[in-house]
């Protein structure tokens, strides 16, 4: 099939930035002195040297009483208890799975913190340990919640709810974790016929909406026989391209922004949405609508 391919010179590249002029807080860069006084406590992104409190990352200052920290605009995922994450199983060990969640160290999913098929109150036997690879094997994608954070910064996950579990058919989009807006729910069913999981760790899962959520036995079923119709796949593809457009212009991702981008993108075909001009156009239109929403 012949396809149009665009190759452009670097000089013709467009600038995806849609930054608006707002009040800019003071920006600190590595090595810069934050304060000379000793009465402050040093938080993340800072260090003490020769009596000065200095920044170690590039970002803006956050102060809570006496605690000063510098938050970088972009970093690996720092987990917090209760976060929804999407991850990929990298290893099966004794009584636990190792999951890559875009954080500094691989997260742990203990066998004891998953719902096994056959009800909540099932005893875990040695049998289950041997069956672990049947439930989840290397390369599988899962959605989970952060149960606790260990002292070395690695996360312990759990899937003790029917919401969580193995993911079957859909698209994974990886973005920088800082672009995901924290909100009450990270599972969204869009009326357009697709659902989305906005993992706090920057992994976004787009999948066809399942109408019947009844036989979700512990969340380890992977129904690969189910045929996803073409319109549904187009919707999923369009959502993905909209998300790419938003992150190209560094816009925050949450249900409203994605839905607005989806609606504004209708004048383009799914493939056209990958052209940089179209992406910026969608981002600008989305931003306009969002600012209208804010002001009204």
């Amino acid at each position: 099939m012949p396809q149009k391919i665009h190759i452009r010179l670097a000089a013709h590249r467009i600038n995806p930035s849609i930054a608006v002029n707002r009040r800019v807080p003071k920006i600190f860069t590595p090595g810069q002195v934050i304060t000379e006084q000793n009465e402050f406590m040093r938080g993340h992104g800072t260090y003490e040297e020769e009596g000065f409190l200095k920044s170690s990352v590039a970002g803006v200052k956050e102060q809570v009483n006496n605690l000063i920290s510098i938050r970088p605009l972009k970093s690996r995922y720092n987990g917090e208890v209760g976060d929804v994450v999407v991850g990929r199983v990298t290893e099966v060990q004794q009584k636990r799975w190792k999951v890559d969640t875009n954080s500094r160290l691989d997260s742990v999913l203990l066998l004891s913190s998953v719902n096994l098929p056959g009800g909540e109150l099932r005893r875990r036997s040695a049998e289950d340990e041997h069956m672990m690879r049947q439930y989840l094997q290397e390369g599988d994608l899962i959605s989970a919640e952060v149960q606790s954070v260990y002292s070395d910064g690695s996360l312990s996950l759990h899937t003790r709810s029917l919401k969580y579990g193995k993911l079957s058919q859909g698209i994974l989009v990886k973005v920088f974790p800082s672009l995901i807006k924290r909100s009450k729910t990270h599972f969204h069913n869009f009326y357009v016929g697709a659902s989305i999981i906005l993992g706090n760790n920057g992994f976004i899962w787009i999948y066809p909406t399942v109408s019947n959520a009844e036989d979700n036995a512990g969340g380890f079923v992977q129904n690969l026989e189910q045929v996803v119709s073409r319109p549904e796949r187009e919707t999923i593809g369009r959502l993905r391209n909209c998300i790419l457009a938003l992150i190209q212009s560094k816009m925050m991702l949450y249900d409203t922004s994605i839905l607005y981008a989806f609606e504004e993108s209708q004048k383009y075909s799914v493939a056209e949405l990958l052209i940089p001009e179209a992406m910026v156009d969608v981002a600008i239109l989305t931003q306009d609508r969002l600012s209208m929403l804010e002001n009204s």
Binding site: A19, I27, E62, S249
Partner: peptide
């Protein structure tokens, strides 16, 4: 380099509305 980092941070921060901070 410092100049470049600051203008980059300013650009990205304004786009996200400094929301993460």
């Amino acid at each position: 380099l410092d100049e470049a980092v600051k203008s980059h941070i300013q650009d990205v921060g304004s786009s996200t509305g400094w929301a993460s901070t």
